[in-house]
Simulated assay, not measured.
Amino acid sequence: MINLIVNADDFGYSPGVNYGILHSFLNGIVNSATMMMNMDGTAQALIMAKQYPGLRTGVHLVLTCGNPLLSDCKTLTKKDGTFKSQGDLEGISLDELEREWSAQIERFIAAGLTPSHLDSHHHVHTREEFLPVVQSLSQKYGLPFRVNGDMPIKGVKSYTDRCLLDFYGDGIQEDYFSRLAERAEDGETVEVMVHPAFADHLLIEGSSYNLQRIKELEILCSAKLPSDIKLL
């Protein structure tokens, strides 16, 4: 038997993303989500997470989208005050990064929620240079992190045994979940990263990955799991 966690990233990005994730939880196979704490839909997502405690929810640590919560972390931002781009993360102060990511986690906790786990936007927590921060946060908050594919992060408790990152773009296939048993071993806990959403103007204007999320939502709400896969 394979234990399955279907984690919806980007909870909090926008209302359309929030409603898509909630719809995929109530009517589909999504059973986990991670929340961006610095976006236009964050306040709504916090309310939803409290209303639906059956959706295990963690924090989607952000370094490459929107604005930081703190104003004194200059190495994390461009001149306009927004976070740096994914391809321009040189010169990051680890102290500033840890303070900013701690602030994101603390905002989640301050809302009266207990995070289930941590991962990150654009997988930046898997970058080798940020490992000391990831290790420190995992220990400080007692939380596991998303694994890097099938590789655990050194010195950090893992959320699952394996994380599949290819239900994305061209990898969005209707038979994706019926074929999962071919890619995992019996007894493993497997996470699949997904991005369901209803498209709204914030998503269309802010993300190049937008309309594909509607296709994800449709499959996540129609998928039938084989008998050897169980939602955890």
Rank of each mutant, 00 (worst) to 15 (best):
S116D: 15
Q86H: 10
F11R: 02
D170P: 05
N27C: 09
F25M: 05
I172V: 15
V190D: 11
F25A: 08
Q44K: 11
T114D: 08
V6A: 01
I21Y: 05
H125C: 07
P15S: 09
L97M: 13
V62A: 11
C163M: 15
M37N: 04
D9C: 03
G91S: 04
I153R: 00
G187I: 00
G142P: 11
V124K: 03
S93Y: 03
K224A: 15
I172L: 12
H195G: 05
I214P: 03
G149S: 09
C73A: 14
F25V: 03
M193L: 15
H125D: 07
D40C: 15
S24M: 04
L231M: 12
G28M: 02
C163R: 00
S71N: 15
A181E: 08
G142Y: 12
L232R: 13
E205N: 15
M48V: 13
E205S: 12
L46G: 12
L143P: 14
A181W: 02
L232I: 14
A103D: 05
N18S: 07
D9F: 00
T75R: 06
L97K: 01
G87D: 15
D170N: 13
D10G: 01
T126V: 14
L97H: 01
S32H: 12
S85T: 12
L164A: 06
V124L: 08
R107S: 06
M193E: 06
Q139V: 11
G142D: 09
G41H: 02
A223P: 06
E188P: 13
V190N: 05
C163G: 01
K50F: 01
N38Q: 09
C163E: 09
L225T: 09
D228I: 06
L137I: 07
G41F: 01
F145L: 06
R99N: 08
R107H: 08
V6K: 00
F11P: 03
D119P: 13
T64F: 03
S208D: 15
D170H: 10
R183F: 14
G187H: 02
L220R: 05
M151R: 13
R213D: 08
I219L: 07
P15V: 08
V147D: 00
L211N: 03
C73R: 10
I214S: 15
L97D: 00
V6T: 00
C73K: 09
S207M: 13
A33P: 06
L232N: 12
N67A: 14
I105A: 07
L69C: 06
G91D: 05
L231W: 01
R183L: 12
Q86L: 12
S24L: 05
G187R: 04
R56G: 07
L220K: 02
A181M: 13
F83S: 01
G169K: 08
G28N: 08
L26S: 01
L22S: 07
K154F: 06
A43H: 11
V156K: 00
L143V: 08
T34V: 10
G20N: 03
G28W: 06
A49P: 03
K79F: 02
S85N: 15
E191R: 14
S85Q: 15
L211R: 11
Q51D: 11
N148R: 10
L55P: 02
M35D: 02
Q104D: 04
A8I: 01
I2L: 12
S227I: 11
L4C: 04
C221G: 00
V6L: 01
T42K: 10
V62E: 11
K74E: 13
H60N: 05
D10Q: 06
